[in-house]
Structure formats: structure tokens, C-alpha cells
Amino acid sequence: MPGVRRRARGPEEEGSMAAGAECADGDCPRQHVFLIPEYLKDASKKMKNGLMFIKLVNPCSGEGAIYLFNMCLKQLFEIKVFKEKHHSWFINESVQSGGLLHFATPMDPLFLLLHYLIKAGKEGKYQPLDQVVMDEVFPNCILLLKLPELEKLLRHVTEEKEIDNKKYYKYSKEKTLKWLEKKVSQTVAALKANHVNVGVRVQSAAFFSSDQISSDKEEDFIRYAHGLISDYIPKELSDDLSKYLKLPETSAPMPNPPSKRLKMSDEPVEAKEDYTKFNTKDLKTEKKNCKMTAAQKALAKVDKTGMKSIDAFFGVKNKKKFEKI
């Protein structure tokens, strides 16, 4: 049977009721827990519509991902999902499985445009933007063309030509790498400002001379930042950026490359894991074991599969989920 029977709810009721109130003694529609920039609330007073969730390409994987798009502010927001096994929400007088927490954070649309520019760049021609940003799979990508100051943004990653007042663009790898380098140093600064522990090497560096410590550390920060940014660019460009940043190739891969950890949709944000010294599996279990109480241990044995991705949010895919319940 597809889906659980849900209570219909007229639009006139919306907003006036607390979550969960409508499911007096039965199943509730799925409730999504979101953290969204505060200013969208103020903006929403003025707008009749224009705030929407859309599916666009994930510039790293090429697969679909959900974004929040604001037509009024002309802004793009990335959606990341925090998901930890064995968690659920109590929301007012209801229970919501999964315990997912969605984050909407502003995102530079250039990462998405870059995906299309690189594709089009393979032809080596100058092309108008509306011919570049076309996607049969994710037709909503045309909304990106409505974002402000695209011309200014595009200068970071393209060569441009103007013929008869019309702009034509061509992907430039050199410019893109320069732009990404700026992003890396911006990220390094943020990592430092937030005292993010960037890896095991930081600790081991303590055994070396002081000079070594500072230089080692810097490289770790850059590598970490590179990993984070690699989540927003294709693999090939990520490799090029690594060379451009003169990051030495590691003989043994880092225990947890950040790029592997901060994945869209199926993976939780798991930022903490990355940033602490407990980011290797061994350390984690070790820590768990010595801290766990009997009840925790007993529960640790029960290993249920994780929750669905944010795709479930778009309705279609959560069919199966509801069947199981």
C-alpha cells in the first residue's frame, strides 16, 4: 500500500496551528526540521511568493540536490542535512522519525554555473550564458540566470567577449583556479577563527621543532579547506586545484578527508567529527567504549539502517519509507 493515510489539511488552517496538532490520534504528515536564515522571515512579509525549494545539480557529483531559492532577494541557499543514527524528534505533541536537521545556508551560485561552464567549455567556444546554463534533467537551472550581478561573478571563471551588446563566455581554468585559491584562503581563515582542529597531523606536529609545527599546520589547514571546497567542484578541478595549491600528495590518505565526510543529502553534515581529534574511527570507538554505560552498550548493538535523504522531502521517494512504517 503506497503511503500512510494522511489527514488532509486545508490551506486556511496553515500557520495557525502548532506542528503536530492536526494529527489528533493518527499519523502525521512528515515534519521537516529546518534552520533558515532569519532575514528570510522578514523578507517573507513583503513577498507573495518566490521562496522555493528546487532541485538543481550538485556541482561535485553531478547528481541532483535540493536548494532553496529566493526570487525576491535573488539568493541561492544550499541545503545540508544533519543526520545521526538512532535519533528522532518530539515536535510538540508528535513524534517524527529520523531526527534530521536541515540547514539552509547562502551559497555562491558560481559553483553551479561553473558546472555548466566547464561542460560547455569543452567545445572551446564563446557562448551566451543562456545557451550554457541549460539542463534537461534539472530545468530549474534557468532560475540561476535571474540572479543579480552574474556578469561580475562570471569574470572570476570565464573569458568574455562582447559582440553587439551581447556577452559571450568561455570557461577559463586559470581564472577559476585563482578564484578557488581565494576561496581556500578564506576558508583557512574561517577554520582558524573557529579553532577547528584540522587533523591528526596537528597533534603529531608537536613532536617536531617549532618551525615545523607552524608550517605543518598551515598545510593541514590548506588541505582541509581544499577538501571542503572540493565538495562544490568536479573531481578533475579538485585535483587541479590541489596541484595549483602545491599540496603534496599524501602517501597515506588522511583518515577522514573532509570531502568524504561533508556530503549532501545522504550524509549528515557531521562537521564536529571533522573538526575534532576524534575523527578516526578507532579513536571514536575507543572513546565510546570506555565511556558507554551498560544501557548504551546494549543499544549500540542494535544497528538499524539510516534514514532517507532529503529527497524524501520531495515526496516521491518517501513512499517506501512510509510503507515500512
Partner: peptide, 19 residues
């Protein structure tokens, strides 16, 4: 882990935020 996740918005501004 949830604490870590809550630091993401700060970091996101630098990593993938708009100029």
C-alpha cells in the same frame, strides 16, 4: 555531533558562501 553541525553555517559562509 549536533554541535559540530551547528558550526556549519559559520564555515559555510567562507567555503561556499556568496562573495
Amino acid at each position: 555531533k549536533v554541535w559540530g553541525a551547528l558550526t556549519w553555517p559559520t564555515l559555510a559562509a567562507a567555503v561556499c558562501g556568496p562573495p
